[in-house]
Design a protein around this nucleic acid. Sequence first.
DNA 1: GCCGTTTTCGGCCCGACTGTTTTCAGTCG
Length: 592
Amino acid sequence: MHVSNKQLAHLLRSVAAAYILTDVNRFRIIAYQKAADAVDSYNQEVYDQWENKGVDGILEMGGIGPTISQHLDQYFKNPHGSFIEEQLQSIPSPVYELMLAPGIGPKKAYRIVKEFGLSDPTTVFDDVKKIASEHKISVLDGFGEKSEEDVVQAINTHIGRLDKEERMALPEAYTLAMDVMNYMQKVPEVEHIEALGSLRRKVSTIGDIDLAIIAEEHTYEKIIAHFVSYPQTSTIESQGINKASVITKNGKRIDVRIVDKDRYGAMLQYFTGSKAHNIKLREYALKKGFSLNEFGIKHVKTGKINTFEREEDFYNFLGLQYVEPELREGSDEIKFAARKKLPELITTQDVRGEFHVHSSFPIEPSHDLGLHSFDEMLQEARNMHYEYLAFSEHNPSVSKHTPEEVIELVRNKKESFIELQKKYKDVLLFNSLEVDILPDGSLAIPQEATEYLDLCVVSIHSAFTQKRDIMTARILKALSYPKVKIFGHPTARLINKREEIDVDWDVIFKMAAQKNIALEINSFPDRLDLPDGLVRKALSYGCKFVIDTDAHKKEDMGLIMFGVAVARRGWLEKNDVINTKNKDEIIDWIRK
DNA sequence: GCCGTTTTCGGCCCGACTGTTTTCAGTCG
Ligand SMILES: Nc1nc2c(ncn2[C@H]2C[C@H](O)[C@@H](COP(=O)(O)OP(=O)(O)OP(=O)(O)O)O2)c(=O)[nH]1
Ligand SMILES: [Mg+2]
Ligand SMILES: [Mg+2]
Ligand SMILES: [Zn+2]
């Protein structure tokens, strides 16, 4: 039976909880928690990996070691009677559910479940609320009036989140962050405010908003008081001297940390994360005799503390290259930084054009047409100082046209480019299409019509759930047609809406590298496809990439920054990305 | 349970906040 990453992470956290409650070695507990974190941040389905490569497929992701991999292998084959199931059975199952409420961990959950003999995980939240309403929790050892209220509040927060997405798409997160930052800047004592955490690392989905503030120490109290009074606050999770957290009416958490200017560098480092990166960095520092925290670097022997206003100096002090936030995921970036071998990441300024925008040209496609005309899109390209642009509308609908009509439509488009190119001498035009990869791997366009194209983007818009071997063969076939230069939004995922296709990426990447077909990094915030993890994998096969916006209106062309963020998170340098090249190099690439 | 250009054994990040405590455990970032 298929196990989703979400279920798997919960499973591993449950084992960790069972171990906490049975007093197992604390580092073994941490190993299970780390494994759960790794599953959460992995952008392929671990179960699929296992299904096709076995234990090696699990080990490959990093973050899970040989023992847990073996246990998972056994669990996936048959959970009944498996080691993992056995561990879980030592604790009543409602504990694992109750733990999901924020602020309730294994110990509190167990205490309550045990005391009242709860046995049904499906009703545990209602059961506990009922018990609380009868004030039976406050009389327990270690509990009181306030903590009884907090339990109910935690359950309500959890339930309130159930029908919402767990993680925000980037634009939503930016909007929320901006709103809070604007609100905080009403306090004149706020010298600087900045979004850190996953937002600074530009992760594709954002769990909460993390803000760092610079201020003088005597103003902290005033600033914190202002923060928790944010109009959208629903509950104040915590309110301390230099940090506070609230949950908004939409169920979104906002964390704030305040620090003085002299120590901001260390705070930037800590609060940008990721957690895995921080732990690896701290372990690395310990070996060199230093202990790190969000305020500075302590020499363990002498106790001397160094402070840092700049984050770069913090890394350099440890003998490391500065690590760009997008690389701080706790994979192997610290090793590279120690050897001064980190990549020089691509920037938005490096992008000189793109290959996937939709115009309103009446190509009569089976999917959606763009909103703006060639002219309007080209004006935008000019504004962005692009040197070239490929129009890639969806192919003309094959069900509504004869092959001859399709050929006619494509030729019309090509002919209209002649005048257009004269008008826009500074932007080299390419006649392209985004062609459907049909379920059998053939392209939704007559071969003759492609003769009028300079290139085409091929992508999947149907039959997303084919089995891995069929899907792999389908894509290989599609990539073998002439004029195919770009594999568009390769996984076809829609964040929070549609899963990635299941395919043997090793085979696809090998073929793409060999045939000089670029993998698209689609910048649309609900796609971000290829996902960053696969970008890095493809890079190791020598693949090349294009960063496209898939713009359906001119304003969408500004989304390119999101695609660049994915590229950076995939460790790409300028040279790995085709649309950083000049016109002549592009023409060469298309001919190859 | 994991892992290795100083280790295959012996270490493993570090601190803030809360409630119920008379010194701390639990939970979280
Ligand atoms: N050293 C250390 N730092 C942590 C730990 N937990 C969190 N942090 C730091 C690094 C995180 O990026 C930062 C913000 O924490 P969050 O829980 O908000 O995580 P992050 O923003 O990375 O991901 P998110 O999208 O919110 O799930 O705080 C920890 O256990 N140890
Ligand atoms: Mg966060
Ligand atoms: Mg946070
Ligand atoms: Zn598409």
